[in-house]
């Protein structure tokens, strides 16, 4: 039971990094970055590539992945956002889809379509923790993601750059009229968002491998997390991501946790990944109908 919880928490915290990046760009430029899922994939491959060059644990590769991905995020802003910034938000949506496809093809050309694994953060295997056996990697993912989520909070709430990022997200023209170089701030937002997606890629590419076509699945997860959590809400994105993972991992494992359920007719069908995914979309629909503002969406003014 606890083992399953740890696994879903690990998956959820990686999703949280992805969703965080998604919502930061959403708030900064009021546009959906559809490449966010492909940035996770790219981060996974960057980790794989560094892992081939340097035989070190994933935690040592993390700073490298963050830097490379921040540069990719900066490039994404330059090609997919700035040329279109005075166009309607939907054009950014489309241009980021295009960049995502480019990233996919690039990954395919460089690494092939076969699944690859990045090195584990510290070490693989299992560890016993107070009587329960859990995966070392899962614990490490939770720890790294927690530190990065905390870092994002501190950066945004406690630093001068964070103030500028939030001011720009709330009223760009006003921010610029007060002397803030909003283009730099927006570029920084893209860099941070891509770095966070890339970190998620590194964290996930050990347990779940990485293939060039992974992005579509991830962007859906980010999207659902942000809708459930509340469009534009940063804490909402984190909570939404955790809920999604809880669903994905817990539901198929329910018969393991509650042995009685395994005996039910159709149990193997009911407690499957497919049904979990279907229920996830149902949950999304319910949220959209019952609480369209999402879980954390009530105070629109407090976004960012």
């Amino acid at each position: 039971m606890l083992q399953v919880l740890v696994n879903s928490l690990a998956l959820g915290s990686a999703y949280a990094l992805l969703a965080l990046g998604f919502v930061l760009i959403l708030n900064a430029v009021n546009a959906v970055n559809f490449a966010q899922g492909d940035l996770v994939m790219a981060g996974g491959f960057v980790a794989v590539a560094f892992g081939m060059l340097l035989p070190v644990p994933g935690i040592v590769l993390l700073p490298l992945v963050l830097v490379v991905m921040a540069l990719i995020g900066r490039a994404l802003a330059a090609v997919a956002y700035f040329p279109l910034k005075s166009r309607p938000p939907v054009s950014v949506f489309i241009s980021t889809i295009a960049v995502g496809i480019i990233l996919q093809n690039l990954a395919n050309a460089l690494f092939g379509a076969e699944p690859r694994a990045a090195p584990p953060l510290f070490a693989g295997g299992l560890v016993e923790l107070g009587g329960i056996v859990v995966s070392r990697q899962a614990l490490a993912i939770i720890a790294v993601a927690a530190v990065m989520i905390a870092a994002q909070y501190v950066l945004f709430q406690r630093t001068a750059l964070g103030r500028r990022l939030r001011a720009t997200a709330q009223d760009r023209e006003m921010a610029e009229a007060l002397g803030i170089r909003v283009n730099h701030v927006i570029a920084a937002t893209f860099a941070i968002a891509a770095a966070y997606a890339g970190a998620a890629g590194l964290l996930l590419a050990n347990t779940f491998f990485v293939t060039p076509t992974d992005g579509g699945n991830y962007i859906l997860k980010a999207y659902i997390a942000v809708v459930i959590g509340g469009w534009g809400s940063v804490p909402g994105a984190v909570v939404g991501a955790l809920l999604i993972a809880l669903f994905e991992v817990m539901l198929p494992s329910l018969p393991l946790i509650v042995p009685g359920l395994a005996g039910l007719p159709g149990a193997s069908w009911l407690f499957s990944q497919t049904i979990a995914t279907i229920l996830l979309y149902l949950m999304l629909l319910v949220v959209l109908v019952v609480r369209p503002q999402g879980l954390f969406g009530e105070a629109v003014q407090r976004r960012a």
């Binding site: 939030r166 709330q170 023209e173 006003m174 921010a175 610029e176 009229a177 002397g179």
Partner: peptide
């Protein structure tokens, strides 16, 4: 030049409708 450079040259702008940053 752009607005930010004019602000830094010494123009302080207080717009119609105040436009304080609501979340700050």
């Amino acid at each position: 030049g752009p607005a930010w450079s004019r602000a830094r040259r010494g123009l302080g702008y207080c717009p119609e409708g105040r436009r304080v940053f609501p979340g700050l």
